[in-house]
């Protein structure tokens, strides 16, 4: 997202400028509206939602729906709120992101600076693995997790997310290290540094930007995952997205829309915060994932 606007502005009249801005603002409303609806309605009592105007601000402000969503709403059969699932997600995301990023960094280092016969093939296999529909691995994965005694555990989910994140983390680091001057590696070799010394002392200190991009990418993907969570998790390991879906689609009792909205925002909060704090890196990650190199 670099480079300034180019000098091809349609040097139109005032009217064209007004049209341009109107369209831009309409789209802003389009993108913001669902968030606005969720936020305002999560702060209303339930009867106000049912009877009233979805777009209106609350007449009676309340944070009760938030409290319910967090600590005592009925999810599945337990009135636990989303809190335990939030914690499950944290315990799943942190190791999965760190391990896959570390492996991706080492893979990228080997693929660019120590490539050997067949390393290109390994990269091709990793790259292609980024795009498989995960439905194809669900059946055997369930069996393997059972065989490893990891069925229904957070460790099992960490393993799954690490494996299926490797392709992208490797891709990111490979493309970054490909632009890293090989002469530096050679100079370090002449200075007598070994494989890991070169990685730690020469490449790692310069890797902060790509590490941030990779971590954000992985964090967003793993946190937002639903398919693996719903397929492989048990109560002790159900992640936030699955819990939210259970909350929203629970068939018993009245639909507490305000609680659902609060829950949805809670589920979105970590990735939203990451996005707000480091949007630049987030976009870079999206781009790197989409447009190679």
């Amino acid at each position: 997202m670099s480079g300034a606007a180019q000098d091809i502005a349609m040097k139109g009249s005032r009217a064209t400028r007004i049209i341009i801005y109107t369209v831009l603002i309409l789209f802003m409303i389009f993108y913001l509206l669902p968030l606005y609806v969720m936020l305002t309605n999560s702060l209303k009592p339930l009867d106000e939602i049912r009877g009233g105007d979805m777009l209106a601000l609350p007449k009676n402000w309340t944070i009760e729906p938030w409290r319910a969503a967090w600590s005592y709403a009925q999810i599945g059969v337990e009135p636990t709120g989303l809190r335990p699932y939030f914690i499950n997600s944290i315990f799943m995301v942190v190791p999965a992101v760190l391990i896959s990023t570390a492996l991706g960094a080492l893979n990228g280092y080997v693929l660019t600076k120590w490539s050997f016969r067949g390393s290109g093939l390994v990269f091709g296999l990793l790259l292609l693995a980024c795009f498989i529909p995960f439905q194809i691995v669900l059946i055997p994965m369930a069996r393997i997790l059972g065989m490893l005694g990891l069925a229904g555990t957070t460790s099992g989910l960490v393993l799954v997310h690490t494996i299926y994140g490797l392709g992208f983390t490797t891709l990111f680091f490979r493309n970054y290290y490909a632009a890293f001057p090989t002469e530096l590696v050679r100079a370090a070799q002449i200075d007598g540094a070994g494989f890991f010394q070169i990685f730690w002392r020469i490449l790692a200190p310069s890797s902060a930007p790509i590490a941030v991009v990779t971590i954000i990418w992985q964090f967003t993907n793993v946190w937002n995952d639903f398919l693996f969570g719903v397929s492989f998790a048990d109560f002790d390991s159900i992640p936030m997205t699955v819990a939210l879906n259970n909350l929203v689609n629970s068939s018993t009792g009245v639909k507490e829309y305000n609680v659902h909205f609060a829950g949805a925002i809670l589920a979105a909060l970590p990735t939203l915060i990451v996005y707000i704090v480091s949007g630049r890196y987030f976009v870079r990650g999206l781009m790197a994932g989409a447009v190679k190199g």
């Binding site: 001057p181 002469e183 530096l184 050679r186 100079a187 370090a188 070799q189 002449i190 200075d191 007598g192 540094a193 002392r201 020469i202 200190p205 310069s206």
Partner: peptide, 20 residues
């Protein structure tokens, strides 16, 4: 022999100074 054992020193085109 490994480069570091050859008792040589090298100056590179890009200088290859460790940036950090």
């Amino acid at each position: 022999l490994h480069p570091s054992k050859r008792d040589i020193a090298m100056v590179f085109q890009s200088y290859a100074l460790y940036p950090n």
